[in-house]
Design a protein around this nucleic acid. Sequence first.
DNA 1: TAGACGTAGA
DNA 2: TCTACGTCTA
Lengths: 175, 175
Amino acid sequence: CANAGIEAILGDVSGVKVGDKFNFRVELHLIGLHRPFRNGIDFVRRGNTIIATSIVASGGYDDYTKENGDVLYYSGQGGNPSAKTLFPEDQKLERGNLSLKNSMDEKTPVRVIRGLKDMKDTKGKMVHTFSYHGLYKVEDFWQVRGPHGNVVFRFRLRRTQGQPRLGPCLTYHQL
Amino acid sequence: CANAGIEAILGDVSGVKVGDKFNFRVELHLIGLHRPFRNGIDFVRRGNTIIATSIVASGGYDDYTKENGDVLYYSGQGGNPSAKTLFPEDQKLERGNLSLKNSMDEKTPVRVIRGLKDMKDTKGKMVHTFSYHGLYKVEDFWQVRGPHGNVVFRFRLRRTQGQPRLGPCLTYHQL
DNA sequence: TAGACGTAGA
DNA sequence: TCTACGTCTA
């Protein structure tokens, strides 16, 4: 693991092109596109604040895209039941959520990786594929009441112009 | 992921040599050496029973080796606290534990992968390395009371003769 | 649907 | 120590 412990990169990652595909989160980690193995939001400390560097819209959450994929609505993190807190709780503006807010304030680019559930060839098994969709910027965020009754953040990101067109756009309905 | 959903292999895996090293569990999965991402015991269904194919002695458990590494004592699985069962429970002779017992009865080979905690070069960070140690056979198993008061299985495996010597032997004290 | 010797980073 | 859009097989 040559890349262990590297600092998160803000913006483009050398050698990674829009449309590049990956099979496992560990691959995103190895090339520095998105370091955490499970966390959907990666960020880096800059001065006194934390700034989001990349997100993974992996599916299964209440995210969705519109307008040919240029706009992505992304749900915040946290509030999930755990061994300690057995019930959903309101998300807080901390960690990844805070880093996305700060990214909005500072107008810094956020790499977006989208997950796609594919049908495996032989068996009818579903497999995940990850695809790099390029740089976005956080435009706005607000709070909504999630399907479990707790308050969750909703971020709106817009894809930066001038990047290579994406292929046939994945349409996420309640991705 | 070309290897998704493959059936576990009993015995040698083509192309994998004793001493081969890996950085992530996902690599063991990809080459078919050990399929589960987290589970320490892999097994395959054979007729009416399940037979262990490989184990990962990753460290952190109460495993240890003796006699220049030819004998490995390996702890069973299960009984850990979860969200449902908040306290340790006695391990049961099922799943992986049962597959190891059946492997003993049928004298089938078990691949052993050992984990080694290494000191990362630059930072003082600990990283995990996995090393294929070859084929073993389950000789015996019994129950002991674990450090948390619950009953756990202890398996004794012996390395099959005639395999390439291992390098300087890792000595696990309470691995 | 749940359980499992995962991983990194805060 | 804990959280986190993991990922498999049974």
